[in-house]
Amino acid sequence: MNQRIGNMLLAFCLGIMLCCGTFRSLSDDLDRVSPGQLAGNLTSTGSDSLNSLMQAWSLHFMQQHPGLNVQIQASGSATAAVALTESTANLGPMSRPMTQTERQHFERVHGYPPLEIPVALESLAVYVHHSNPLLSIELAELESLFSAEPQCQPGRSIRRWSELGIASPLGPRSISLFGRNSASGTYGFLKQQLLCHGDFKPEVHELPGAAAVIQAVALAENGIGIAGTRHQSAAVKTVPLMQDQQPIALQRTLYIYLNAHPVLGPGPAELAFMQLVLSETGQQLAVRHGFEAMPLDTRADLWQRLTEALHVD
């Protein structure tokens, strides 16, 4: 009996070691830090949603490479495409994929497409004032709230809380809608996924940051807003989003875009930064900041693609 258990343990250990063996080369490659002679400046321009995470990554990165200085500007995803195209930034964090037009602009200037690297996942949540009795909201209702004319599903526009089944005193009041400004990835993502390319109502308040959305909802009893899940606060509460009585998540991928020559690959500093971002340490930082980590095999694939670009010459 004892021997059998011992054998099983041995087999288990062997199995784990085997698994580790196959992954070791990949994760080792990602986690191996070369405190090289990198020096200079890295400039990042883009998403506001990714700002806190970029700060964390760059702090960590600057500890690894004391010679390097990372500057971060966060004023909306659309700025990343412009800055990369105009070569005023090395890294372009974006909370939505680049559009065809932006890619074309980039290609017209540089002659090759930008390099797209998914770096983390983020869920969006619906926030209401903490005193709001709303328990859950249907996706179709959310569309009817924010859309000028619902496109995904037929329905009429919702203007008052009573239409969502809320009793007095809140019921008769109109709903104040809070969202992000049109430069943000959240805006574009919602426009595509929630509104099916329809138009937002003109009444939707466009605020310049996710924190501003939370703050505005916290101060407005009749408010409802959409922002990333990581912005929790006591003055607001999140409302579960449902579709046909099943909870669903509005999840989006966050990217960093690079200006990488197809033959020469990205510069050494950019490459080192992406190594940190895709490594276990970088992804743990992402989780700590309220994002979700990318799956390991995706990251390994990405890293391989990044380094392959280097070895082509």
Binding site: V82, T101, S182, A183
Partner: peptide, 8 residues
């Protein structure tokens, strides 16, 4: 708000 997002 929009100048930085607009493609030149």
């Amino acid at each position: 708000l929009e100048m930085p997002e607009a493609a030149v």
